[in-house]
Write a protein that binds this DNA or RNA. Structure first.
Length: 716
DNA sequence: AAAGCCGTAA
DNA sequence: GACAGTACGGCTTT
């Protein structure tokens, strides 16, 4: 079904509204006489600035969160932007066009709201909610009570195709015919019942095209509203579940859920809460509210176990009704009872041949109609394979949860039509001052390269450059210096290095336990236990395994040695490891946790560090640059302070370089022998001969070789 | 428990 | 500005 996607419409107002003195100079606005009491600025490009010290800060924040997206929220002035998506979200919580405009008008500093903004709001709130996407008897329908809306929608090519292909599907499938007829009668009766109140028109659409239909409707300014009238859903079996009386919901958790459940129905969307602030409980409360079958999707098996435990901890659900569905645990479905299924994105999106047991469970899941789909770490959903699963599972309502709603590609925006609008986003600094998360100071430590390393760095190939700035001896020494200082203060320290070579180097030099991908599960548990529970193990070295879902409540210091390029998500997630409120946390201005990033000065790492920090800066964090190079260099007791040690380290790195070059063979040298050495046993490739696979592999590499030829071809 | 394969991050 | 490249985890099979 290859359809040309409709040209994507602009999601935001143009930035070049004014050309005078740069595009963001709005000098010519007339201020209200009492503008000092008005907390917001509204700019023609849709950006809104809020003074955080205003007495009505809290109310205005609640309003802005509902109608706009936070761009950056440091201490004093918060920036928001009004987008089409944010306006859809606003209308879906029953804020109408006039109300939005009048609130902005009342609280802005200028006499008039920019006309561009007024028009933008009018244009993008007009059609919202006029068409709905509804799930009935495991089939999807588009319906509307407004005349002519369905005809307008059918102007969209993909909608037309989705409608036409579903009809032919019903005719073709001979099986379940009786079932079809019965359901069709049900459907007609339903439609009649509703028709008494309001005329509903609807048509069924091809379930395989939901994604593309939702996207195109969004882009054509007809976003499809998804609402679940869960209290009146009598067709689906109810789930016996409530929160335990002892379970306490925090105010921000309640607030985020109120966005999902206003007017007695559930709507799909995304809730953003910082690491360690109880996202799981928000998901569980949503399940307890809807009280119908639910699926929870996580990124790892460990997370699946955690969700199961949390359900047992906070809710009254019968543990037998919690079904884990992963490679290692496949629980049995109880007869005729609603269940909570907890699984992974990989399991649901798995393309290969499934084991018999897995296939059986999977088919069951696909045949059920689900009340709620909860997506943990929802920022992964736009990935090619993961996004498929959310429409393969038929659910009335979808809730995405995350702390870090960022990706380095453009696809985070897709969540708007894949799931729904962002319903709530907590402010990290507010949560910090309320004591819900620890108060962390972020520090960037600049480590100059040693002369010898810098010399090599300048002429090294890109890959080797990385190794050189990561293994910079001054960085090693700085790390030891900081460890020493914090260990003396009784702190618990996590050292992160993405680079395994350097991880090993530190581990050997400093005699520290290390957890990386290769570490067995037993060994991990042993190290983590001793870190958490004894005082003779206060420092651990970890690779990127510890970015997610390794729980270390005791840790309060992070030292980051190397990281994955400019990943903002990784930086935030690492900070999240020490965000859990400390037991001895006192309400003072003092920091109770520290996050150090060691950066080799004058290398590419400086640029990556800047990029990585952007997400946390937008949340209001500020990085201090710390210069301790003199103290570090003066300390002769540190490993690698001695020139000979540094020299032999450099030699080891350069040797590694030679090995790399050797492995980098010329294209002409590729023979079946060298290929199979690289790719392992090729005979296992299903349905393909080794010869074909070989050719494909070298074709994949072809582009690279061509570039090298170009580069070295003389005289052209 | 290890190996093979695949998908994800960016 | 895409790309290469490395690390990792999940699912299945042996």
């Amino acid at each position: 079904m290859d359809l040309d996607p409709a040209p994507r419409k602009k999601q935001k107002l143009a930035d070049n509204v004014s050309d005078l003195f740069g595009k963001n100079d709005f000098y010519n606005f007339e201020l209200k006489p009492d503008h000092l009491d008005k907390p917001i600025w509204v700019c023609p490009n849709g950006h809104v600035f809020l003074e955080a010290h205003s007495p009505i800060y809290q109310q205005i924040t609640d309003f802005l969160i509902a109608i706009a997206e936070p761009v950056s929220r440091p201490e004093h002035v918060h920036e928001y932007i009004i987008t089409r998506y944010s306006l859809y979200a606003a209308v879906s919580v029953k804020l109408d066009t006039d109300y939005i405009i009048s609130v902005l008008q009342t609280y802005c500093k200028t006499v008039n709201l920019p006309s561009e903004v007024i028009e933008f709001i009018q244009e993008n709130t007009a059609q919202y909610g006029k068409a709905k996407l509804v799930l009935k008897h495991n089939r999807y329908y588009i319906e509307s009570v407004y005349e002519g809306v369905l005809d307008d929608l059918l102007q969209i090519q993909s909608v037309r195709v989705a409608k036409d292909t579903v009809q032919s599907m019903i005719i073709e499938s001979g099986e379940n015919h009786i079932e079809d007829v019965r359901e069709e009668l049900d459907r007609l009766r339903d439609a009649e019942n509703v028709e008494v109140a309001e005329k509903v028109e609807s048509f069924e659409i091809n379930p395989d095209m939901i994604e593309i239909v939702r996207r195109d409707c969004h882009d054509e300014n007809f976003p499809l509203l998804e609402e679940y009238d869960f209290m009146n859903d009598t067709k689906n079996i109810k789930l016996e579940i409530d929160l335990k009386p002892s379970t306490h919901i925090r105010s921000y958790q309640e607030k985020s859920l109120s966005k999902m459940f206003s007017n007695g129905r559930a709507r799909s969307g995304v809730i953003v809460l910082p690491c360690g602030s109880g996202k799981t409980l928000v998901g569980i409360t949503a399940v307890c509210t809807i009280k119908h079958r639910a699926i929870v999707l996580c990124t790892s098996g460990v997370a699946v176990e955690q969700w199961k435990r949390q359900f047992e901890l906070w809710s009254t659900v019968n543990p037998a009704n919690i079904i884990r569905f992963t490679a290692t645990s496949k629980d049995k479905f109880p007869e005729n009872q609603a269940t909570i299924v907890i699984s992974t994105y990989s399991m649901m999106g798995f393309q290969g041949k499934r084991s018999a047991e897995s296939q059986e469970l999977y088919d069951k899941l696909k045949n059920h109609e689900w009340g709620l789909l909860v997506m943990d770490e929802v920022q992964v959903v736009p990935a090619d394979m993961f996004r498929k699963v959310i429409f393969e599972v038929k659910s009335h309502c979808k809730l995405g949860l995350t702390a870090t709603l960022v990706r380095e590609d453009e696809r985070i925006e897709d969540l708007n039509f894949l799931i729904g609008p962002k319903l709530y986003e907590a402010n990290w600094l507010d949560m910090q001052s309320l004591g819900h998360i620890a108060k962390v100071q972020c520090i960037e430590v600049w480590c100059p390269m040693t002369a010898e390393f810098f010399q090599e760095y300048l002429s090294a190939k890109p890959r080797k450059k990385i190794l050189l700035y990561v293994a910079n001896p001054n960085k090693l020494m700085t790390c030891q210096y900081l460890v020493k200082k914090h260990e003396a203060a009784g702190d618990k320290i996590i050292i992160f290095s993405d680079n395994l070579f350097v991880l090993e180097l530190y581990s050997k030099a400093l005699k520290l336990p290390v957890i990386s991908g290769q570490t067995s599960q037993d060994e991990r548990m042993r190290i983590l236990y001793s870190f958490e529970n004894t005082s003779n193990n206060n420092v651990i070295l970890v690779s990127k395994v510890a970015d997610n879902s390794i729980d270390l409540p005791g840790a309060n210091v992070i030292i980051q040695i190397s990281s994955h390029f400019g990943s903002r998500r990784q930086e935030a997630q690492r900070l999240g490891r020490i965000l859990r409120p400390k037991t001895n946390m006192v309400q003072t201005s003092e920091f109770n946790a520290s996050f150090y990033s060691l950066v080799s000065q004058d290398t590419q790492e400086m640029w990556y560090a800047d990029k990585r920090q952007q997400f946390l800066i937008d949340q209001g964090y500020s990085y201090k640059v710390m210069n301790i190079v003199n103290e570090v260099l003066a300390d002769q007791t540190l490993k690698f302070s001695n020139k000979n040690e540094q020299k032999s380290l450099l030699e080891r790195l350069l040797q590694a370089k030679d090995i790399d070059d050797e492995a980098n063979e010329d294209p002409d040298d590729i023979t079946p022998e060298t290929m199979s050495r690289k790719t392992g046993d090729l005979s296992r490739l299903s349905g393909q001969s080794a010869g074909y696979a070989l050719q494909k592999k070298s074709m994949q590499r072809h582009k690279m070789f061509r570039m090298r030829y170009k580069k070295f071809k003389p005289g052209t």
